[in-house]
């Protein structure tokens, strides 16, 4: 599904990612954890194609295609979805219309006819129930005046509508209270399928109480310094990041 090989990336001339390697197979859920500033969100941005991030080395294969050669929109149309840490407000554009445009752009790319109003509405109803989101939210301007929880739920709703092959969830748990977290996590769990991969980016272990990852990776100073199963996340929760980072920093100083 996704194969990241030795990715190095700069922002404003500063190297943030220093050689990331990661393989994600269909249906797998990987969690990337790490202290603030370790490069987690940079990795998400690089995969989605954000232009301020300059990839200086390495390659990424996505369903056999050279991901880095694709435009931002083509990556999305190929099935890469990014749930934003800070979803953006677009005044005057209703959430429904926005998602309709997105769904139909993807269909066009796949050589399909646009969904008619009836089919689109039917699909919306289904997915709305799945992620527990109300109609009133969807008729409002996208993300404008939404609470933190509403924004994140709306992201998951868009994920449900766009049915991606790979969903990257960038700190989707941040800023959520426990109830909102549960609703969002439930939505994500319902969207797990045998051929959909998920990359969870999170600072805290608590999200992983709700979404069980197959693998956990610790990102530190632009490299994956430790990988394991979900037990690694529990260990991190117990001991903090220090137990890994200190040994790394020490060996670097030797």
């Amino acid at each position: 599904m996704l194969s990241i090989k030795n990715i190095h990336a700069n922002v404003e001339g500063k190297e943030i990612l220093k050689g990331i390697n990661l393989d994600i197979k269909p249906g797998e859920v990987h969690a990337i954890m790490g202290p603030n500033g370790s490069g987690k969100s940079t990795l998400a941005s690089v995969l989605a194609g954000r232009e301020e991030y300059e990839v200086t080395e390495g390659e990424v294969l996505f369903s056999g295609k050279d991901l880095l050669e694709l435009s931002i929109e083509d990556r999305a149309r190929e099935g890469l979805f990014l749930a934003f840490q800070y979803p953006v407000e677009i005044p005057g554009v209703s959430t429904t219309n926005f998602i309709k445009a997105a769904v139909n752009e993807k269909r066009k790319y796949q050589g399909l006819e646009p969904l008619d109003a009836v089919a689109f509405l039917k699909m919306m109803k289904e997915k709305m129930a799945m992620v527990e989101i109300g109609q009133s939210l969807l008729s409002r301007s996208i993300n404008e005046g939404f609470s933190g929880g509403e924004k994140k739920r709306n992201e998951i709703f868009q994920m449900a509508m766009l049915e991606p092959k790979l969903a990257i969830l960038d700190e989707t748990d941040s800023g959520l209270d426990i109830d909102a977290l549960r609703i969002v996590a439930n939505g994500i769990n319902k969207l797990r399928t045998p051929d959909r991969s998920i990359l969870l980016i999170t600072h805290y272990q608590r999200l992983l109480d709700y979404i069980q990852p197959d693998y956990v990776h610790v990102l530190y100073k632009g490299r994956i310094v430790k990988s394991g199963t979900k037990e690694l996340a529990l260990e991190l929760e117990e001991k903090g990041y220090d137990f890994i980072t200190e040994s790394i920093d020490q060996s670097a100083n030797v």
């Binding site: 194609g49 931002i72 929109e73 999305a76 990014l82 677009i90 445009a101 997105a102 790319y109």
Partner: peptide, 12 residues
Amino acid sequence: DQLFYCRQRGID
């Protein structure tokens, strides 16, 4: 940010 958000959803 607005443009990136739209483009990430497949809207050119």
